[in-house]
Design a protein around this nucleic acid. Structure first.
Lengths: 213, 213
DNA sequence: CCCGTTGTTATACGAATGTATAATAGCGTC
DNA sequence: GACGCTATTATACATTCGTATAACAACGGG
């Protein structure tokens, strides 16, 4: 009668894991940890809750996988924007900065998602390790771009410090722009970020090419 | 035998509410919302869970009260740190920056507490209103300090933009230093912040006076 | 000194959570 | 085309959550 077992298709481990991770990210962004329950995640991914424990050791394990996925995607997006365009060092750095300070990278949903993860840092050492890895990954890209500027009279230590400072500007502005999007019109945050990074590095950064003329 | 009812003292509504708010802040900082349960908060405050509903409409109501309390205390601390010392504009700004980039302001526990609240922003309009108020309050202080530098050839709009940029640097570095305290030795973050703010403003900021000679 | 008010505790309840275990069915293999 | 492996579903379980309600006791006023 009503007791029909739902039909399903067997799929690869890879696609199932990704579907579950994406579903977890969706729910975490929309409603935070309170909403991202095992049942809700499975439902969003089109499976039943039990399957999560078949691919992940537990909910914490899934959360960690989602965090790594999220952070690597953020960096990859900025890297892609940086790589897409003229090879001039200053133009590349300029694209890297501005792409981090506008949608889809700078977005309220990403902020709440990010804060949700950040909260798990101090209680979960493994999460902190993931954070360190991905943070260093982003900063290393930034540092390489700064080194490529070939500014005279700047050694490696200075470039490292400058990368930390620029990373701070970008993070902070990203935070503010995503927390209060209605407070900053148009590309205000991008321009402020560009000028601040330029001031810190003592280099004049060009405004990036507009997609829409 | 064992069924002894625990003794207690009647106390004022004010002190009970504050005790509950402080307990909630403690637990939110230590373990996030997952740990700050009604029972845990009551236990920390030295009362039983039922009492919370006697003083607050529900857990959400207590959370809002805790958020308000936390933000007001943060603002008061920042203003105090800025005001305590010589009246030189550059020295005041310097103290304001560095005091935000070292303990007890820059601390892992404050970071998790802050992220915990930030997460409630997108679902609770009342929280967002409080966030906007306090953020603008903080930035206005910073902007006033920047205006007081009396840099030649800088208008009000420029000072506003500079305040946003400096706020970004401070927030971002605070974030990174609190998230990975073991990554930055000594006063590295403070010095980087000082130099970055100085570069953005085109002003050389003095290193603040040391408390310990 | 007793008594009423009410701050406070104790207990209970329904819902929801993460996890464990058993049953089923899709799909490759022979 | 039957079989076996295992991905997937279904069900059950213990726990914990926020909240509701009833019993108790501390303290002030008569």
């Amino acid at each position: 009668m009503t007791g029909e077992r739902r039909s399903y298709r067997r799929e690869s481990e890879e696609s199932r894991r990704e579907a579950l991770v994406l579903a977890a990210l969706d729910l975490l962004a929309e409603g935070g940890p309170a909403v991202a329950t095992v049942r809700a995640i499975a439902d969003r991914a089109g499976v039943t809750p039990g399957l999560i424990r078949h691919y992940f050791a537990g909910k914490d394990d899934l959360t960690r996988a989602a965090y790594r996925y999220f952070m690597e995607r953020m960096t990859a997006e900025s890297v892609a924007a940086m790589a897409a365009g003229p090879d001039d060092p200053r133009a590349r750095l300029s694209r890297f900065v501005t792409s981090s300070l506008r949608p889809p990278v700078m977005e309220p949903l990403r902020l709440s998602l990010w804060t949700g993860f950040l909260q798990l840092l101090h209680s979960d050492p493994e999460m902190r390790a993931i954070h360190r890895q991905t943070y260093h990954g982003y900063r290393d890209v930034l540092e390489a771009l700064i080194v490529a500027l070939a500014r005279p009279g700047t050694d490696a230590a200075r470039c490292r410090a400058d990368a930390i400072a620029c990373n701070g500007v970008i993070d902070g502005l990203w935070l503010e722009g995503a927390a209060l999007p209605e407070d900053f019109s148009g590309d205000l945050i991008e321009q402020i970020g560009l000028r601040a990074v330029g001031a810190i590095l003592g280099a004049d950064l060009p405004e990036p090419e507009k997609d829409h003329p």
